[in-house]
Design a binder for these strands. Structure first.
Length: 868
RNA sequence: GCCGAAGUGGUGGAAUUGGUAGACACGCUAGACUUAGGAUCUAGUGUCGUGAGACGUGAAGGUUCAAGUCCUUUCUUCGGUACCA
């Protein structure tokens, strides 16, 4: 008998077998119940890392389990192949994004195949292929026709020196990551999807996704950020013009002593025009344009503002109040203007203190009074109206509605709902993406390209500019176009490409009919397979990717292309696999293998010997190079052990700091099972598994083992079905194996032999989704069944064989464990109590005292607590 | 900053509804077998204490017969924060 499992011989053999028998190829089959399981497709960064291994192993186990349960399972794989890293790599290594991407896909596909994942590879897609993005362009045109896409000016990070747009990731401390020049904000005309039209629908349905983790729907709700409030018009002093503000606190309007506009607000310039503040305002707006305007960036800057030189009339008080422009007001939220109530809002309060502006109490707490002269912070709580004319004395909740109605009657306000969610900007001034299918004509404006011209191909032979800029605008043969409407020949093609989130918003539908040429997908195939029954991916996608996908299905639903709105019925968000970063002062981020540990225990760079700075433990990502390639594990232990270990390390939703010290244990387990199985096969030839109830087994230890086996089936099934907690499923099987090891394989007891055969068979079935190659091999060697273990059915446990006749009773005195004994499971509460009190150790502890109370619990645990 | 998570032995983690804290592993210690061992097997292993016992789930309070689990406050770390995907 071979003493060891040899993955290098066995795994390729079964991979070949599965391929030959086309076991993972699926087709629509109305006679079977479908199950569509999808893992988030990878960006082809070059190599898969442990995070991918974990993600795809989880999915593969569920897929194999569902197949054994009789489902017709769709399990595809593909590549999120457009994106910025390809451009960066092209600049760094003097390659072409396409060449780099396709080479990476080849390498990663090979690695995935080595892992034995059960994909239907015939359905593979890559989003950078024209056959894919053609349909994305087609959809863009449909949306364009329906007014679901529009253009507006918005800001990008701009490096003047490199003459290029930078992603947020490429901005380091306000500077360009390549040249360290200070980054500017530059205004460009860009395309937007009107996702805000669906804000309410997306929000409402967050509560109708029972298969999603609450934390994800909570994050989405907060992201959409509905707030109910009012729009109030403030007339500009001396002009027939209004500034419209959005506020969630219309009750405080009497306390509005100044206003703030976003620096990008169109009225900032017009209001300051001709005042002595004109220059100061222009300077301020210029200054702010250098500041990062992201939510995260905003917090980095001190709150500041400047007087515009203009005043507005507070519609409630009739007073003139100054209008400021301030960096903490966002153009993208509400109306881009706020009324400032320093007594009731902390930011307004800080601002008022800084610029010496009036503070007036309008909502006062009921239990104490506040003097606006001496207050140190805003009062944001509930209270009673003061200084508010005829509304004085009302509670502020009532006043909210009444003041809104009052303003409405005067035509100065109305109740509105505002969302934090902004429209989705999809224009990218990049090369490696899907071209936006629009032609700009001097006469006709923006014109969609005719459908017959699709796809608008990305010119793959183009070379990237040295500093990272897109070459598309410089390519006359690409950028020059004839207007499809009027035929003008000096029209210009849009040279922006689409955000890569667009590709990932619908790829799961393309998998249903990946080679379909008459549309985005074959409606029949989508009808059968969609929506995705189980989606699995990193929790870092909780908001953007998942929200965009939900939005896209609503768009397709509106366009009549699909009959559902929610793309993913169930969602599992796995935790991230993390690792510390390694930073060399000379060479930047290092791969783990490039940082060498020296005798002193610190790290040095393998290229230049400099001391390496060990950074924080963060999610594995190609850009930070803190990635662990599974190849080494695959070489040494094979796919099955690697799969087992990645599942055994932690439950899927937990973040994991990568550490492979434990893999020896997984390897040891697999080899233990190997030896035990081959031993059993040899010794129990011709013996059939025991089938009956546990109560018919005479040998007590055989009975115990049999019950353990049924408990294991139950535990593993529940863990997979209910929570995807494979780590505990695996430890349950380990317990069974440990127990099987204690039995004498040479015993003459026939029932024991039958029980052992039962255990062996079922153990293999339970492990087969996790260790598919291994289990195929052992299953084949057992010789009692034919075909693949994949085609077997999942084991069932017997309800009548899950319990032993004895229960363990634990006895506590004042909640502290003092004794335990086992008893017949049918013992009465009274018998248990008496037995506990009669226990020697308990008697000693009680001494003369009489227990105040004796509590007997018979739930998961039989427990007696004696209170003295 | 804001939104969402997570903190349990030397390590990864376990503990349906509050009910034996530390399952299952890694590591370590000792032993067995062996020409050999980075193979395998057996036993031990939360901390303090010779012991009885005491203490122990990031920290501090609280509820309860009983708290890792519920409540309040707080600290640290991670993810997202709209152009990384």
């Amino acid at each position: 008998m071979e003493q060891r499992y040899h993955p290098e011989l066995i795994e390729p053999k079964w991979q070949e077998y599965w391929k030959e028998k086309k076991l993972f190829k699926v087709q629509e089959d109305p006679s079977k119940e479908k199950y569509y399981l999808l893992e988030m497709f990878p960006y082809p960064s070059g190599k898969i890392h442990i995070g991918h291994v974990r993600n795809y192993t989880i999915g593969d186990v569920v897929v194999r389990y569902k197949r054994m349960r009789g489902f017709n399972v769709l399990h595809p794989m593909g590549w999120d192949a457009f994106g910025m890293p390809a451009e960066n790599a092209a600049i760094d290594n003097n390659t072409h994004p396409a060449a780099w991407t396709y080479a990476n896909i080849r390498a990663m596909r090979k690695q995935l195949k080595k892992m034995g994942f059960s994909y239907d590879w015939d359905r593979e897609i890559a989003t950078c292929r024209p056959e894919y993005y053609k349909w994305e362009q087609w959809l863009f045109l449909q949306m364009f026709q329906k007014g679901m896409v529009y253009r507006k000016e918005s800001y990008v990070n701009w490096c003047e020196k490199c003459q290029t747009v930078l992603a947020n990731e490429q901005v380091e401390q306000d500077c360009c990551w390549r040249c360290s020049q200070t980054v500017q904000q530059k205004k460009l005309w860009q395309w937007f999807f009107r996702i805000t039209d669906y804000a309410e629908d997306l929000l409402v349905h967050c509560d109708k996704l029972p298969g999603w983790p609450d934390k994800v729907t909570v994050m989405q709700k907060n992201w959409i950020g509905q707030s109910i409030g009012s729009e109030i018009k403030f007339q500009v002093d001396g002009k027939n013009e209004d500034v419209v503000v959005f506020t969630t606190r219309p009750d405080t309007v009497f306390g509005a002593t100044f206003m703030c506009l976003a620096p990008e607000h169109p009225m900032v310039e017009t209001l300051s025009l001709g005042t002595e503040q004109e220059a100061a305002v222009a300077a301020f707006v210029q200054k702010i344009s250098r500041q990062e305007r992201s939510a995260e960036g905003l917090e980095k800057y001190e709150k500041e503002g400047v007087f515009t030189g203009a005043f507005c009339i507070n519609p409630a008080t009739g007073e003139k109040i100054p209008v400021y422009t301030a960096n903490f007001v966002l153009m993208g939220y509400g109306t881009g203007a706020i009324m400032s109530v320093p007594a009731g809002d902390q930011r307004d309060f800080d601002f008022a203190k800084k610029y010496n502006l009036d503070i007036r109490m309008v909502v006062a707490p009921e239990d104490h009074s506040i003097d606006p002269e001496n207050m140190t912070q805003a009062y944001t709580g509930q209270g009673v109206m003061v200084n508010s004319g005829k509304f004085n004395g009302l509670d502020n909740q009532t006043a909210m509605d009444e003041i809104t109605r009052w303003l409405e009657d005067q035509g100065r306000g109305k109740k509105t709902i505002s969302y934090r969610l902004r429209d989705w900007g999809i224009s990218r001034q990049r090369y490696w993406g899907a071209p936006i299918p629009v032609i700009h004509c001097p006469d006709c404006g923006q014109v969609g390209v005719p459908e017959s011209d699709l796809p608008i191909r990305l010119p793959e032979e183009a070379n990237l500019l040295e500093k990272g800029g897109s070459p598309l605008p410089t390519l006359a043969y690409f950028a020059k176009a004839t207007c499809p409407v009027c035929g003008r020949e000096d029209a210009r093609r849009d040279t922006d490409t689409m955000d890569t989130f667009v590709e990932s918003s619908w790829y799961y539908l393309r998998y249903c009919s990946p080679r379909y040429t008459n549309g985005m997908f074959d409606p029949e195939a989508v009808k059968y397979w969609a929506p995705v029954d189980q989606y699995i991916g990193g929790v870092e996608h909780a908001v953007l990717h998942l929200l965009y996908s939900r939005y896209f299905m609503r768009v397709l639903n509106t366009l009549g292309l699909v009959d559902f709105k929610e793309p993913f019925t169930r969602l599992l968000t796995q935790g991230m696999v993390c690792k510390e970063t390694m930073m060399c002062p000379e060479h930047g981020y290092l791969y783990p293998e490039e940082a060498i540990k020296n005798d002193a225990g610190s790290f040095v760079c393998s290229k230049c010997d400099s001391d390496v700075e060990v950074g924080r433990v963060i999610k594995m990502s190609k850009s930070k190079k803190n990635v662990v390639d599974p190849n080494e594990l695959l070489e040494k232990y094979g796919a099955d052990v690697t799969r087992l270990f990645s599942l055994f390390a932690a439950p899927p939703e937990r973040d994991l700091e990568w550490n492979e010290d434990g893999i020896e244990g997984s390897n040891r387990f697999v080899n233990r099972v190997w030896r035990l199985s081959l031993d059993c096969i040899e010794k129990f030839k011709g013996i059939d598994p025991y089938q009956g109830p546990a109560s018919d087994i005479k040998n007590e230890s055989a009975k115990k083992l049999y019950i353990k086996a049924h408990q294991t089936i139950q535990k593993v099934t529940d863990d997979i079905e209910k929570s995807f907690h494979f780590n505990t499923a695996i430890s349950a099987v380990m317990e069974l194996v440990n127990e099987m090891y204690t039995y004498d394989l040479d015993s003459d007891d026939v029932q024991l032999k039958q029980v052992m055969v039962f255990c062996l068979d079922n153990m293999l079935l339970l492990l087969s989704p996790i260790l598919p190659h291994f289990c195929e091999e052992v299953f084949a060697r057992s010789g009692r069944q034919h075909g693949s273990i994949l085609e077997q059915t999942w084991p069932e446990y017997r309800e009548d064989s899950l319990q032993t006749d004895e229960v363990l009773v634990v006895v506590q005195v004042n909640g502290k464990l003092r004794a335990k004994f086992s008893m017949d499971a049918s013992a009465s509460v009274d018998t248990i109590k008496q037995t506990a009190l009669a226990d020697e150790r308990i008697k000693k502890l009680l001494g003369e005292k009489t227990p105040k109370k004796v509590i007997v619990i018979q739930k998961k645990q039989t427990l007696v607590n004696i209170v003295i």
